[in-house]
Design a protein around this nucleic acid. Structure first.
Lengths: 142, 142, 142, 142
DNA sequence: GTGGTCTAGACCACT
DNA sequence: GTGGTCTAGACCACC
């Protein structure tokens, strides 16, 4: 279950990292409506964070309509999770990119230079992703 | 003096917004070595923020070697500020874009979709900038 | 046997919902002293809840003197269940309404508005009940 | 500042009580857009609860669009709080009453009896409110 | 001073 | 076992 990785040094709060990554995992189809997520305690020990932090993330997921808790049973992916997290993911991605580009443009950096940077980073990202996917295929199927 | 705009609702600290935008202004050449920046109080009342916040931003600018104070006179743009700011700006822009794209890729959004979003946002940003620049030419002092 | 309906998303514990609805059913006279209740397993599969949950509800009913078990036979409605249930029902209803109205008044909502809401909801409820009763007459066993 | 009272023995979580009562206070016009709420720590000591509990309530209020925090400054009532809390209050009140009446009707209690109970409780509530208001006038205007 | 995050640990109710 | 609430206390960043 290496689908979540938290970076406690990041400025992004740990609980938000969890929310975001669970959302992405559902968006990628790794979790489907009705599936049970790992329990709060289990995920907490796995990620080496406090159960309260995971609980906070799960509460946020619930507020977003992505999951629902059944007391004494576990946390489950909601029926309408598909559309919701699809939308959330898109909003998140578009929002982050829009902000980065707006600030970049506002910085006075020439448009041509900006495009070069984007192309460079896109290639870097594609390279990283392909590597991850391939190693994932090797390890995952065992 | 519409060269700085702070968003108090943003997750980015106000003082960082000020530091960044002053840096960008110098990188764009709107402020040149030897120019005097507005006073802490003046900028604070203009931006509707606490003077302490502006003061902290100014301390940061000085720490970065971008400005220097002349006692009883004000804060001035340093001699080597140009190159420093251009470097900082590039690092900043590249870093933000890299992070946004990395997260986007990790979200599982198809690469093609990602490119479409980028193109769309680039157009949006270009449109906004052209409008700002034109109205800036009319009202600005340069 | 559509006399019980549980809502697993409600904040009211499932076992309490069962206790309450059995109580109401007896108060309505649908179950009479000496009648046998459905078995724990049967009710559990019917309501799609954990058998432990139904078992807890049944323990509660017995504790209230509403039912008694006959070993190897099943759970039966007690002799004095009628009066008990009517009293419990009244207490329950009065308590809930009192709390709802007290909070409503405390919210600062104008008394006139409050009355309008009550009238509206009473009509809604009456409409729903009449529908249920009629369909119940057709399908029910009484 | 006796506008909030929490009951730690209630089944309603303390943080929800705070959310609800702040919402009602705004709906009643006791707090207006731009006003600063008491600080987390201040309210915590006043209500004799843990600061984290108050913080949780404030986070919920923010999620509802009723307030917004300014780090290092305080929590403020949002501009659009009026309409929002008006709506929230109505939803809350209607929802509670609807549930109470639906359950009451479903309990098989005769409609006439139900109306009697409602009238009785309405009178009780009106009596309590008038007493509170009057004593509030006496103490408040000094 | 403020709010925000996180940890640690307790207790409760539900399944 | 599960999730939910609450307390206590620490640390951080911001104003």
């Amino acid at each position: 279950m290496a689908w979540i990785r938290v970076d406690t040094t990041s400025s992004e709060p740990v609980y938000e990292q969890i929310v975001r990554q669970v959302t992405y995992a559902v968006a990628r189809g790794e979790y489907r409506p009705g599936d049970r997520l790992p329990s709060v305690r289990q995920l907490a020990t796995e990620l080496l964070v406090n159960p309260n932090t995971v609980a906070k993330a799960f509460r946020e997921l619930e507020r977003n309509g992505l999951t629902y808790p059944r007391k004494g049973d576990g946390v489950f992916v909601a029926e309408r999770a598909g559309e919701i997290c699809e939308r959330l993911r898109r909003e998140e991605v578009v929002g982050r990119i829009a902000e980065a580009l707006r600030d970049a443009a506002h910085s006075g950096l020439p448009a041509q230079e900006l495009r070069r940077i984007i192309e460079m980073e896109l290639r870097t990202v594609a390279r990283e992703e392909s590597r991850t996917v391939r190693s994932g295929e090797e390890h995952g199927k065992r």
